[in-house]
Design a protein around this nucleic acid. Sequence first.
RNA 1: GGCGGGGUAGCCAAGUGGUAAGGCCGGGCUCUGCAAAAGCCCUAUGCGUGGGUUCGAUUCCCACCCCCGCCUCCA
Length: 468
Amino acid sequence: MNFSFPLPPFRLYNTISRKLEPIKPINPPHVTMYACGPTVYNLAHIGNFRTFLCVDLLRRALELFGYKVIHTMNYTDIDDKTIAASRAAGLSLVEYTQKYIDAFEQDMQTLHLLKPHFQPKATEHIEKMIEFIRQLIDKNHAYIGEDGSVYFRIASFPDYGKLSHLEKDKLKPGSHILADEYIKEHYGDFALWKAKKPEDGEVGWISPWEIGRPGWHIECSTMSICYLGNEIDIHCGGVDLIFPHHENEIAQSESVTGQNFVRHWFHVAHVLVEGEKMSKSLGNIYTIRDILERGFNERTLRYHLLTASHYRQTLNFTWQGMEASREAVKRIDQWLSRFQSLPKSQFQLQEYEEETRFLRCFVEALADDLNITEAIGHLFDWIRHTNRMMDKGEPLPPLQRSWQLVDTILGIGEFSVEIPPEIQTLLQMRAEARKNKNWATSDRIRQQLQEMGWIVQDTPEGQKAWKV
RNA sequence: GGCGGGGUAGCCAAGUGGUAAGGCCGGGCUCUGCAAAAGCCCUAUGCGUGGGUUCGAUUCCCACCCCCGCCUCCA
């Protein structure tokens, strides 16, 4: 994308420094980005997708700024939950998780998420994890517990706690301390390899230690290094992963490589539903499909999860909020439909100061820690401004061009309706009736179309129809 | 207890040391056979509370009150 103005530095909040910092890629223009993906034991919910949507926004913004992003997102397809759920379903682990991987990919498409370049599965990298753990043991960062599991020794890593800003000496066992905790040297030590237990059923891999399976954190370290290198530019995830997951990843990775693991830590705040945390007992865990069933389309959902608040701000999901977003998307659609139906001859202003100003503001907002909320504000200013020009019949700048740029970021797609033949026929009949000022027939057809799920509007350019 | 985030109009939400973007809702007008859309106008002397610094603070400092998250496997 070429801009007629200089691009500002791209600044992003870095969890580890707690400051806004310019992106400094290791090998510009490439940016290596790893995102902790879903645990595939059920359908992902809107909270999960809010995070992935923000990661997607980050990627799109970086690409707009000319960076070549290499995006990796893993699938956690082995852990307590996947094992338990697959056994309960009477399926093998792979059969079971594949079902939810497929569902997740479908949902990603629904929400117009760009496909990551790599989507590795934990179960396909067991060998590499074993090698990784072996190195940790060799370097005396890990030890074998009495139960045969392998644990990371946090005392061996002086920087432990640098991401979450927790002091390892102050870590105290919580109420949910596990029965086998006494096996570990320090309650902060965490499992790299888990020895097989009866409840694991058939699941287990042969290793230099007991038969078993990898701990959770090791997969991300292994796959991040495997696909993107010892040090990467950006590592993403939900805020809940800061501790212990990402803290542990740092400890493992830096202990093995002796290098800095991640330059920029990007964390997305959580979603609440009607002011409350999503939970099974409240029955307020919504999946993408749940939202669509409520009659909201996927573009509204994407728009809402992306723009209702800044990514570092908790998003309180409400139906009222969804309705507001639906109206906002409709307003954008009306504007698109309006200028797209104008003759080419009306777009005469190749150079238009106001357009440049708008694009500049939009881009600068994004460069300022992905301030999408502000960027959208500029978009609506631009919409109002150009609607006014259209009202007056003034020459217009090439609106399609600026919209395309904006939609590179928003990803809510073009407003395009495929009108089925039967609807087309009714519209023609109505147009005919209107020509003869046969209002009764005109209104009857409009009513009929509405019952069929189509809204029709009369504009100076003729009828316009779209699906509810 | 430790660490962090937040309290801005009916709802959502940016933001700045000089006097409050934007969206939704609501009201008025214009346009229109009607409807819808669109445009224009209106809608916070006010930014949790109390002090302080300042010519001036919602924005800086101090104290206090609420809400939320994390503190071992939840995005």
